[in-house]
Design a protein around this nucleic acid. Sequence first.
DNA 1: CTTGACCTTGACGTTGATGTCAAGGTTTAT
DNA 2: ATAAACCTTGACATCAACGTCAAGGTCAAG
Lengths: 126, 126
Amino acid sequence: MRIGELARRAGVSTRALRYYEQQGLITARRSANGYREYGEADLRLVSEIRSLLAVGFTLDDARPFVDCLRAGHESGGSCPESVAVYQRKLAEIDDEIRALLTRRAEVAAQLTTACPGCVLRKVGKP
Amino acid sequence: MRIGELARRAGVSTRALRYYEQQGLITARRSANGYREYGEADLRLVSEIRSLLAVGFTLDDARPFVDCLRAGHESGGSCPESVAVYQRKLAEIDDEIRALLTRRAEVAAQLTTACPGCVLRKVGKP
DNA sequence: CTTGACCTTGACGTTGATGTCAAGGTTTAT
DNA sequence: ATAAACCTTGACATCAACGTCAAGGTCAAG
């Protein structure tokens, strides 16, 4: 299939696919006329990339997962490199959550000072 | 005082101060030679801006606070416009926290699938 | 043969808050 | 008089993942 069809099937733009290729995440055979030619396996790769991006991974984070799939593994996350990324990402997310909770407390404190009784909701368990 | 001194006292770069001016957050008298001239009140403004940036506000968010101070109020957060920004920001932070918690759960679930027993910490109450 | 739907590469625009350099004017000290 | 330490405006660089044109080649249908 050509780039347009892959894009439609994967739910991404052709620009994104060319960008992934430029970043070395996917590759494409070329037909005689220079058009990129993809197979079903590439749809798997792009889907993996998109689902990782959707949960906040960068393209660089996604690389081990793609490599893992290309190495023939059933899941992109089953290689040790991918697991390492998972764990690093979890740690990063935890850091971000902690930072946000801290910020929330600071802002709420300032608001309370400026306008007592203005703070409304909690975030813990609504 | 001139821009260099204000920058040192406020702990920011001169570049940042010129940028704040360009964005209409602070203004400066000009001496005969064209140099910017600041007073103590400007130090207050810059400090307010920095503390707001530090908790994740944008320069645009900071504008009502600066206006509030310039209008003669003791606190930048005591004007209704500032309170509105506080509340909007709290809501935004809450949204981000919720999104991150969701993402964390998704990533942890994927990791558990790929590598049972790899998930380590909690974020709720350590 | 020509319209239209594909495809190609290349390159600039987006977002925010600066960093950094360029090229120059001013002031103070030696 | 000249170096050192200020100041000025202007403009390009940064980060990520693309969007959006530009200018053109390819191919099937009418």
